[in-house]
């Protein structure tokens, strides 16, 4: 392994961006103001997670991590759908 590994460096930079993204998303989550806003934030968190996992593939060189991304991609939306369904109900309930 040479000192300057371009992929690794790029991945670190990418991680930097992704962390920044996470912080932004977190800001929206904490701030709101409405519940759908936070839900959007949660959704995006999932994508950022996918991004991080994919970036991790570059750092570690292990393609097995892609499976994690696959599962996240497949499953997270169920959470959003459920929460949305709940919010609807709640709203009509008032």
């Amino acid at each position: 392994m040479n000192d300057f590994n371009i992929i690794r460096t790029a991945a670190y930079i990418a991680f930097g961006f992704l962390l920044l993204a996470l912080v932004f998303v977190f800001y929206r989550l904490a701030k709101g103001p409405s519940l759908p806003d936070r839900l959007v934030a949660l959704d995006l968190t999932a994508y950022i997670a996918i991004g991080m996992i994919l970036t991790l593939v570059f750092i570690s060189g292990q393609t097995r991590y892609i499976d994690v991304a696959l599962i996240i991609a497949l499953i997270v939306f169920i959470g959003s759908v459920a929460v949305a369904k709940f919010l609807k109900r709640r709203f009509y309930d008032r």
Partner: peptide
């Protein structure tokens, strides 16, 4: 609901941390 969403975020964050240390199935 906010608490729940935040909890979900915590859970995923932990999953990421697990993944970072090579625990794929766990994540």
């Amino acid at each position: 609901v906010v608490a729940l969403i935040a909890m979900g975020m915590v859970g995923w964050g932990l999953a990421l941390i697990f993944a970072f240390y090579g625990a794929i199935d766990l994540a």
